[in-house]
């Protein structure tokens, strides 16, 4: 700041400040972000956790992608016995992929010809992070959380997903200990595809339920 306060050189400080591209650490931190940082620093200072443990945990959480969920769904599409296990006890089923969720309870919900599932957490941002990674920013927005529960069809339309009135739209509000994974419908024309190829067409949004898996275009 002090370098910007003397006026003895010739470029325009005002324009300069406003024209520089936004930097990731420009934003003002909220009360709770500051509180979080303060608690983290205290825990490190008191030796409760090490800075490297915190870093490693963040790195691990950041490294999870929706590819985890896609592998699970692709298996469910090709292996009816696995699909039955997934719908009955999703925690046990995803353990077959080495995905261990000791503190959350996963529930898989299947889309059918007559039922379309979509997931929200109206109270915060509960999300099956072990399968889908970090939630997208829109999932955490007040607009999505308030609207998808009260006007799901309008929200789905905005995501480009049009559903017939004959299809039941079922919103899952993750209000407690359960985390929801949508098993989207397998599109026609994918009969001969391998599990890996199928996994490549299953996207994050289809497992949240705001989109459907597109049929393959030839």
């Amino acid at each position: 700041m002090s370098t910007h306060e003397h006026h003895d050189h010739d470029h325009d400080h005002h324009d300069h400040d406003h024209n520089s591209p936004p930097q990731p650490d420009d934003k003002v931190h909220s009360y709770y972000q500051i509180l979080g940082t303060a608690v983290k620093e205290l825990l490190i200072e008191k030796g409760v956790v090490a800075a490297d443990e915190v870093r490693r945990m963040i790195e691990r959480r950041d490294s999870i992608t929706p590819a985890n969920g896609a592998k699970v769904v692709a298996r469910a599409w090709t292996d009816p016995a696995f699909k039955a296990r997934l719908l009955k006890d999703a925690n046990a089923a995803v353990q077959e992929f080495g995905i261990d969720m000791p503190t959350t309870h996963l529930v898989a919900v299947e889309n059918t010809e007559n039922l379309h599932n979509v997931v929200v957490c109206t109270l915060c941002s509960c999300y099956p992070r072990d399968l889908l990674g970090l939630p997208p920013s829109w999932y955490k927005s007040k607009a999505y959380r308030a609207r998808v529960v009260s006007e799901p069809r309008a929200v789905l339309e905005e995501f480009g997903t049009s559903l017939s009135d004959n299809v039941e739209v079922r919103v899952h509000d993750s209000t407690a200990d359960m985390r929801y994974l949508v098993v989207p419908r397998r599109p026609a024309g994918t009969e001969g595809m391998s599990q890996d190829a199928l996994a490549s067409i299953i996207t994050r949004d289809t497992m949240i339920g705001v989109a459907v898996v597109e049929p393959l275009q030839n």
């Binding site: 009135d165 039941e168 919103v171 899952h172 509000d173």
Partner: peptide, 9 residues
């Protein structure tokens, strides 16, 4: 606005 079968769990 939506079908009578639409639900929220």
């Amino acid at each position: 606005k939506g079908g009578p079968r639409d639900t929220v769990d």
